[in-house]
Computed example of a mutant assay.
Amino acid sequence: MSTPNYSLDVYKIPRSLVDVEALAQQASRYLKIAAEDTEFLSHHATRRDELIAELYRRPGVKPNANPDLFVPLGGDPDVYFIPANAAIERITPPKTLEERVKRLHLAATAMSIFSRFKITYGLLDHPDLEMQYQRRRTQIMREWYKTEFALLFPESAAAKRMPTTPPTRGHLPSPPPTRPATVSRRVSREDVDEFLNNPHTLIGKRFVHSPPKGEGQDQSDDDCGTWHVTSYTVRVADGGIEHEYQVVLEALGGGALPMDGEEVRYLLQDSTFAA
């Protein structure tokens, strides 16, 4: 069955109306909620899994954050955001594990829809503004992990800052000896396409993100840092196969962030291979 034709123009934001800061703050709110609830629930794994199973047995609750399941082709994403944001507010701060699970589900789904419609589609004609959004969101999350997250979960934050030896896994080769030729090599356009076409090849590789510093842009090192993909999931959507990546930006203290393919492409295109 062919995908219905519709225009993405309905989602495009006119350049004069793009508020990079507001977009980054909204995305960061969903990410902060997801990170906080994920960490809290990790200390109650058995009950968490029971509650998640119960939630997804409820009629009308979709056990998948695929935007296509919530916003039909050509539909208005705000029809989801308005009630979802209100529901998140009602259970913030959460008082029970049940509310944690529900809030995590709402925030993860909202982030997926937000990324698709407000960023990928909304900024389709403004790649420079999308890059500014990505950088600002990273800055916000980096600061949050160093401050609020560290206060909420001091032991977890400390552990994530400690150097660790990667676990030995039978299906992953041991890291090769450091070689100057590979340490500084930039990720080429061909590398980017190969990685995104074969996401499993990203697992076990480390990169250093070093975006160019253009005139008028922030000249600090906030946009730079080592990162790697810890895992990815595959979904079958109406438009084909979609991937969601769990990405660790080490400057954020080791917390994993969910990213789609375009966000990983953004990181890869201005990265070098790390040791």
Results as ranks from 00 to 15, higher is better:
Gly74Ile: 07
Pro14Leu: 04
Glu215Tyr: 06
Val247Ala: 00
Leu55Glu: 08
Glu148Ile: 13
Phe153Asn: 06
Glu190Phe: 06
Thr38Arg: 13
Thr230His: 09
Pro177Cys: 03
Leu17Met: 12
Phe70Thr: 03
Ile13Met: 03
Asn66Thr: 12
Leu124Lys: 15
Tyr133Ala: 00
Ala275Thr: 13
His105Arg: 04
Asp76Thr: 09
Ala65Arg: 07
Val248Lys: 01
Cys224Ser: 15
Leu196Asn: 05
Glu215Ile: 14
Ser42Gln: 09
Glu36Arg: 12
Thr96Glu: 07
Gly60Ile: 07
Gln269Ile: 09
Ala27Thr: 01
Leu172Val: 02
Lys32Cys: 14
Ala158Lys: 13
Met259Ile: 03
Ala65Leu: 10
Asp9Tyr: 11
Gly253Val: 01
Arg142His: 10
Leu249Pro: 04
Pro173Met: 09
Pro258Ser: 11
Pro166Gly: 12
Thr138Ala: 15
Thr147Asn: 10
Pro59Glu: 07
Lys95Glu: 15
Leu252Thr: 11
Pro67Tyr: 00
Arg169Glu: 10
Gly225Gln: 01
Lys205Pro: 01
Gln26Val: 08
Gly216Tyr: 04
His105Leu: 02
Tyr6Ile: 12
Gly225Ile: 02
Leu17Tyr: 08
Ser156Val: 15
Ile113Thr: 08
Asn5Lys: 10
Glu190Asn: 13
Lys146Ala: 15
Pro167Gln: 03
Thr109Phe: 04
Phe70Gly: 07
Thr201Trp: 03
Ile119Ala: 01
Ser210Cys: 12
Gln132Tyr: 02
Arg235Lys: 12
Trp144Ser: 12
Asp260Phe: 05
Met259Cys: 07
Phe195Val: 07
Glu21Ser: 15
His243Phe: 11
Leu51Thr: 00
Phe149Ile: 05
Gly240Thr: 08
Asp238Gly: 14
Val71Met: 01
Asp68Met: 02
Asp223Thr: 08
Pro211Gly: 04
Tyr6His: 11
Thr165Phe: 10
Glu89Arg: 12
Leu55Lys: 00
Leu31Phe: 01
Lys95Ile: 08
Lys102Cys: 08
Pro199Gly: 09
Leu31Ala: 12
Asp49Ile: 03
Ser42Arg: 15
